[in-house]
């Protein structure tokens, strides 16, 4: 019986590759866009301008307070009613990019706030403009604090991409769901799906903790 199943599984090889490719492409695009947008928003938000901070803050609360599944449903089912033509892939990109921007924004804000005020004062005292301060003094030092949680966030987002299977997008998880209909061995099929995710995510998890160790130790401010 198991040999028949294995045979069937191997026959699903092309489908599995498509699913893996979909997960990878979805993740890469959303993470890249999300990082760019998240950084921009984070810099804006850390600027202490009340209007920026308030609006962005409300949006962050909205994204952090609701399940990603619900956000995907909202995007996929409601945007078309507002006139936006949408397929599952685009909805997935929008949803995941949105999620990524939100969390990365928060990470960047925390990193900027971690830079000692003395540094900002020194830059201020030299007559550097706000943008020069950010670019030359604050952001380079903030990166040290930002990098470990950023990589950790990438892992979380790659895992969250599996939720997009709920609107029919043929990603790795959906491939598993489709295959298990024909090959009723849930343990085997999803163990393989899990293995695929593991191979992608585990190295990133290791990278995050190695970054944490190396950057955390060097984070000690210049000793007086």
């Amino acid at each position: 019986m198991i040999w028949v199943q294995l045979h069937s599984l191997i026959g699903s090889y092309p489908l599995a590759l498509r699913g893996l490719a979909m997960t990878v492409v979805l993740s890469l695009i959303s993470l890249t866009l999300g990082t760019l947008i998240g950084f921009a928003l984070g810099v804006l938000r850390a600027d202490d301008s009340r209007t920026h901070s308030g609006v962005i803050g409300a949006w962050v609360d909205l994204i952090r307070g609701t399940p990603f599944l619900v956000q995907i449903f909202l995007i996929f089912f409601i945007l078309p009613e507002l006139g936006v033509e949408l397929d599952a892939f685009t909805a997935g990109i929008i949803g995941l990019t949105n999620l990524a921007s939100c969390f990365i924004c928060e990470i960047v804000v925390a990193g900027i706030r971690a830079v000692p005020t003395g540094q900002v004062e020194a830059a201020l005292a030299s007559g550097l403009s706000r943008w020069q301060r950010m670019r030359q003094v604050v952001l380079p030092q903030a990166m040290r604090v930002v990098l470990p949680p950023l990589v950790g966030q990438y892992v979380l987002l790659i895992k969250d991409s599996s939720v997009v299977s709920a609107i029919g997008l043929t990603d790795l998880t959906r491939v598993g769901w489709l295959v298990v209909q024909r090959v009723p061995n849930g343990l085997l099929v999803f163990a393989l799906v899990g293995l695929a995710y593991f191979i992608v995510c585990y190295p990133l998890i290791l990278l995050a903790s190695r970054l944490e160790k190396r950057l955390g130790a060097a984070h000690a401010e210049v000793q007086l």
Partner: peptide
């Protein structure tokens, strides 16, 4: 105006 701080505040990077 030049300002010298008690904590130096040199840019570590």
């Amino acid at each position: 105006i030049g300002f010298v701080f008690q904590q130096f505040n040199l840019y570590p990077h």
